[in-house]
Nucleic acid binder design. Sequence first.
DNA 1: ATGGTTTTTACTGCGTC
DNA 2: GACGCGGTAAAAACCAT
Length: 330
Amino acid sequence: MERRNRSSQKSCPFCGKSIIGDCYRGELICSSCGFVVEDHNEYQGPEWKAMDLEEKQRKVRVGAPRTLSLHDNGLTTVIGTGLKDSHGISLSPYMRMSIKKMKKWQKRIRTASSEERSLSAVLSKINEISNNLNLPKTVTETAAHTYRILAKKKVAKSRSIMGMAGASIYLACRKCRVSRSLKEVSRATNADKRTIAKYYRLVLKETEKEYVPPLSLGKYISKLVNTIKIDPKVERLAIHLMSEISNSKIFDGKAPAGIAASFVYISSMLSGAHVPQREIAEAAEVTEVTIRNRSREILNNFMIRQYLKVIPKDGDEILADRYHKSLNLG
DNA sequence: ATGGTTTTTACTGCGTC
DNA sequence: GACGCGGTAAAAACCAT
C-alpha cells in the first residue's frame, strides 16, 4: 500500500511551524518538534487495497469521502464546465445553453429549503469550531450527527446557533473521549459557558439514550502534561498515583481539572522536575489555591512511600504529617 | 429562589535564591 | 527584591432542590 504524507496548512501550537499529517497512521505530527497535534484520526486515504498499479487505477472511483459534516453528506452532483460530451464530441450551442441552465438550477436546488440552508450554515459552523479546537475528524462527524438529529426533531429551533453547535461538539468530545473543557468550547464558539451547559443538558436528553460517562482523570492528566512541556515520567507517576487513590472519597464533588493538576504537581515535585504551581494552574485552567487544596487533601490522607505504594493513613497520622515530609518520601 | 458546596479572588507572611 | 509557596477570608460560581 502506498504511504502518503500530506502536508496541511495548520501550524503547530508549540513551535508555530508547519505540521505534517501522516494519514496512514492517523496522526497529525509537528514536523519540527514532534508534538502530536491530533491522533486516532481515521485513515483518510482510500478504503481499498490495490496490489498493483493496474488494480489501483481500476479501483479509483470516488471523490472526497462521504461526510456528515456537510449538509448533503458531501454527495452533491457537480455539473462540469467542459465543452465536450463524454465521447469527446463538441456540444452544440443549444446543449451548452441547456447545461448552463441545469448548472444554475442544480446550485439553487442543492440548498433549496430554509431547513437545508440553516443546516448547512450550522454544519459549517461546527466544522469551523472543530478546526479551532483541533478536533479529530471523528469528533466533528459525531457532532454533526447529533446536530442532524436535533434539527430533525426541531429542538434547535429558536435557539442560539453557536450554543447548539457548541453543545453538540461538547457532547461529541465526551462521547469520543476527547478532552475539551466547556471553557474551551465556549471560547471557540464565543458563546456563554452557561448557555452551552444548558443546551448540553438538553442535547443529552434529546439524543442520548445511554449514559455518557465523564472523562477519566487519566485523560485530564494526559492533556495537562501535553500542554505543558514536561518529562513523560511525570505523567506516568501522576497516573500511577491517581490510579492508586482515585476511588477515594476525598475527591467526591471536586472538579477533575483541579485533581489532575494536583497529581501532576505532586508528581513533578516527587520526580524532581519541579514545575511551579502557577504553570500547572494556567495550563489546567484552575487556580493555584485549588491545586494547593487538592494536594493538601491527598497528602493529608495518604502516605506516599519511596517505592510509590500509596497507603491510607489512620486517623492519628493524618494531622501529624505535613506536606514537606511527604515530599521527602515518607 | 435558596442553601450548601466548591472555586476564585485578593491578600498576607515566610523562606530562598 | 523577586519568586514560589502555603494559608485564609470573602466573593463568586455552581448545583440540586
